[in-house]
Each structure stands twice: as structure tokens, then as C-alpha cells.
Nucleic acid binder design. Structure first.
Length: 115
DNA sequence: AACCTGACGACCA
DNA sequence: GTGGTCGCCAGGT
């Protein structure tokens, strides 16, 4: 689902969770993205928190600032506190996605094609 | 088993 | 606008 986010658009952790049928499992989306080997083909940097901020954390060991630079590179203004304008850049799938409710299971290996 | 810690989010002061 | 609490769930100690 993250792979579908176009350049210059944003989605939230909770939104991704909801789109894959795992309503309320935002933390697991962060859990999955956290484990991505970087650099990654997946546009992980286009996922931000619902407050409209990059989740800054020392535990990310710099990936948060990389995220900021990548977003700026795509034309999205991000201030030094990670704040950005979420609503104007918010992405929504073209076609509605209907899935059965799913539990918050660990994600499978991410070798999905970037379609 | 009982904590603690997260790339979260809704709510409230 | 900010900050704190709480519910959430996976993992680690």
C-alpha cells in the first residue's frame, strides 16, 4: 500500500493500516517501516503521523532527517520540528479498497513490486 | 509474569 | 498552539 503513494503525496500510519484492513494498527505500520533496510525502493518517507509531523526520534538514527530531506526534495515544505502541511498533500487511493478486518499481524517480507 | 519501549492516535486540559 | 493521558499491540528484558 505504501508503494502506491505517488511522488509528492502523503499518507499517515493509521491510514495505511486502515487501507490494508488492519484498523487501529498504526503502530504496526511504524513497526514495519522501522525495519526497512535503507535505502529502500519503497516510498517509506511519504508516511507521516496524523499530527502532520515527521515522527522525530533518536532511535531512528537519522532516518527521520533523511525523511525530511526526501520530502523537501519532492516539494513538500518541512520545518525544523518536522511539521508539514498534511491536508494539501494527503493521498487517497483512486479506487476504494475493501478488505476484511485483519488483526495486527507482523508484516510479511516486503518484496512487493512498485506498481 | 511484570514491566518497559516504540517511525501511533484520539482526547482533554 | 502545546503537553499529558490513555488505549493500542509487538518485542525486548
Amino acid at each position: 500500500m505504501v508503494a502506491r503513494i505517488p511522488v509528492g503525496r502523503l499518507a499517515t500510519y493509521g491510514q495505511i493500516a486502515e487501507l490494508i484492513g488492519a484498523w487501529g494498527c498504526a503502530r504496526q505500520v511504524g513497526w514495519a517501516l522501522r525495519r526497512l533496510p535503507l535505502p529502500s525502493e519503497l516510498p517509506w518517507h511519504r508516511v507521516v503521523n496524523a499530527a502532520g509531523r515527521i515522527s522525530l526520534s533518536p532511535g531512528r538514527e537519522g532516518s527521520d532527517w533523511i525523511q525530511r530531506q526526501m520530502l523537501i526534495g519532492e516539494g513538500i515544505a518541512v520545518d525544523a520540528q518536522g511539521r508539514l502541511a498534511l491536508a494539501p498533500h494527503r493521498w487517497r487511493p483512486d479506487a476504494p479498497v475493501h478488505l476484511e478486518p485483519a488483526p495486527c499481524e507482523p508484516v510479511p517480507p516486503l518484496d512487493l513490486p512498485l506498481a
